[in-house]
Design a binder for these strands. Structure first.
Lengths: 110, 110
DNA sequence: TTGACATGCAACCAAATAGTTGCCTATAAG
DNA sequence: CTTATAGGCAACTATTTGGTTGCATGTCAA
């Protein structure tokens, strides 16, 4: 759990443009900066800044391919928050479910 | 789902002080402003502003009792986000669980 | 009624944020 | 080699944010 910074994740998720970028990456993973810019009412530099913030929060990882920078969504921090923060508030209703979930995860292997 | 504003919820959750206030309310629900201030390195007015933001995001509801304002945590918006945003990223692993969860919720009544 | 207590309201301030523009670097293609 | 393309870096700006101080209002208790 090294480099896991809840605060950075929450702050990254606080901006609608960044959530939109994550949505776009969810629809099609591995897009370049240029592709992610298309159709947005923002300069490329603004988008790049948002992506940098998502990268810093470890919500997006990148991979260079020649002069292109491919962006991949990373679900780990979101799951992490869901685990240790959000589930807290549904523990009462879902306590029974929690054990089952762990069991299923262990079963599916990843 | 009236008044349900994802953006306000995400922005409210982005601040560590506000998350701390939610944690405190989780530990003991129905605290007054004064109680919530104790031990925090902030003025009462600063805390009041944070609580107002949490109220506006519908994460906290209040109830006046004489001259005291009691604060109660409201888990609905957090569950909402978990449902339609966060679960998205764990759908693959948990798709089987989703139906069961709905079934359990329907079963328990609230 | 008077004083203490719980909270609200408003003005103000510093720092962070989201965005811009302009220019630089590196890779690919003709 | 030259040019177009993909992206990075830095300076600057306006707005939002988190916090402060000072004062006003409403409620309980003596």
């Amino acid at each position: 759990m090294i480099g896991m910074n809840d605060d950075a994740v929450f702050r990254a998720l606080a901006d609608a443009s960044r959530r939109q970028l994550l949505d776009r990456l969810y629809d099609q993973n591995g897009q370049t900066l240029g592709e992610l810019c298309q159709g947005l009412e923002m300069t490329r530099q603004a988008v790049a800044k948002h992506l940098a913030i998502l990268e810093e929060a470890n919500l997006v990882s990148v991979q260079w391919q020649g002069r292109e920078k491919l962006h991949f969504i990373n679900p780990v921090p979101i799951n992490h928050i869901a685990e240790r923060w959000i589930n807290k508030f549904e523990r009462r209703q879902l306590s029974a479910l929690s054990a089952l979930k762990k069991a299923l995860e262990g079963d599916s292997g990843q």
